[in-house]
């Protein structure tokens, strides 16, 4: 496969995942803020700044808007063309990348991306967001699910498919770690010990953002505790949005791309992904929290970036060296 094609497929996949993640967080946050409106003395706006923090985008946001409110955050995170992470930018970038690799993806995948792109660019999108925001976010998220389902069922499961998986799980691992990081700080003021009083509603909202609430309840029997939520979202092996699951999946994808056996590595990207995978596998939540959850999550994010960069140099920087004439 052409290096440029691999790169485009990877970014196509990341942008779709990112658009979905944005829709998720906005949706859950909106519902949460709605609850606040009916709680006396609570200001619904105070729930919107953390969304911007999650994406580490405060600087650009506050250049455009004085304060974070549902209206300003929606505008910025959904429709702002000058925000490279807005849903509209993500879907445009996903489509742009898809357009350059149409010969490598199935026609159905292309049509699905094009459909959701045409939707977000249409007047219907704004009208729907106003009349039925829940339906709007659902449309975006379902657009992504549909894309993933179509991918799994129509695409040749070769190298391109594995680059899609790799991109998706890099993005997802990064996202889950960010959202956990921000919420944890917000909800657990420093100095407070594990087991202190917390606002369970917020933690439920966090789980719901990751589609994890019901899965969590089945494992932890309904007790919502921050360190358990953290354990679930970081270390659960089977939940498809946990960090360990994401890292294990991207590690598998890298091994499939190279054809190398599991548990070994044939290039730097695999060495890094494998070592992160087993690091997570042998980690325990008590220890993580004792040493600082923020530091831990920060390290995860940096290591994901390293893996992505290493994969890029292995597969996408094929130079003139090594060519035989």
């Amino acid at each position: 496969m052409l290096s440029r094609v691999a790169d485009s497929i990877y970014w196509m996949s990341r942008y779709i995942e990112r658009a979905e993640n944005n829709a998720r967080i906005l949706n859950v946050n909106m519902q949460f803020a709605l609850d606040a409106e009916i709680r006396e003395g609570d200001d619904p706006d105070r729930y919107w700044a953390p969304v911007i923090n999650t994406l580490e985008d405060q600087e650009r946001f506050f250049k455009k808007h004085d304060r974070a409110s549902q209206m300003t955050v929606f505008e910025y995170m959904i429709f702002a063309e000058d925000n490279p992470n807005s849903i509209i930018s993500c879907l445009s970038n996903a489509r742009e990348n898809a357009r350059t690799v149409r010969e490598r993806i199935s026609p159905e995948m292309w049509e699905q991306i094009n459909k959701i792109y045409l939707f977000i660019r249409s007047n219907d999108a704004r009208a729907m967001l106003e009349a039925n925001p829940y339906g709007f976010f659902r449309t975006i998220a379902e657009g992504s699910y549909l894309f993933q389902g179509i991918t799994q069922n129509t695409m040749v499961q070769g190298e391109g498919y594995d680059f899609i998986r790799f991109g998706k799980f890099i993005e997802r691992g990064d996202y889950t770690s960010r959202i956990l990081d921000v919420k944890y700080h917000l909800l657990l003021p420093s100095g407070e010990s594990v087991g202190g009083t917390v606002d369970t509603l917020q933690w439920m909202a966090l789980l719901r953002t990751c589609s994890a609430l019901e899965a969590y309840r089945q494992i932890y029997f309904g007790q919502i505790a921050p360190w358990k939520v953290a354990e679930f979202l970081i270390l659960n092996e089977n939940f498809p949005r946990s960090i360990l699951f994401s890292v294990a999946s991207l590690d598998d994808a890298l091994h499939k791309i190279s054809g190398g056996g599991a548990g070994r590595f044939s290039n730097e990207a695999e060495r890094l992904s494998g070592s992160l995978r087993y690091f997570l596998f042998y980690s325990q939540i008590d220890q993580i929290i004792r040493n600082g959850l923020h530091e831990f999550l920060d390290q995860i994010q940096l290591r994901l970036i390293e893996i992505a960069e290493a994969a890029h140099s292995v597969y996408c920087r094929v130079g003139d060296v090594g060519a035989s004439s």
Binding site: L2, R4, V318, D320, A323
Partner: peptide
């Protein structure tokens, strides 16, 4: 694409 030794190659994930 690139040319080496007057032969044209494309850059792929498996090398030139």
């Amino acid at each position: 694409l690139f040319v080496q030794g007057d032969v044209v190659f494309m850059r792929t994930t498996k090398g030139p």
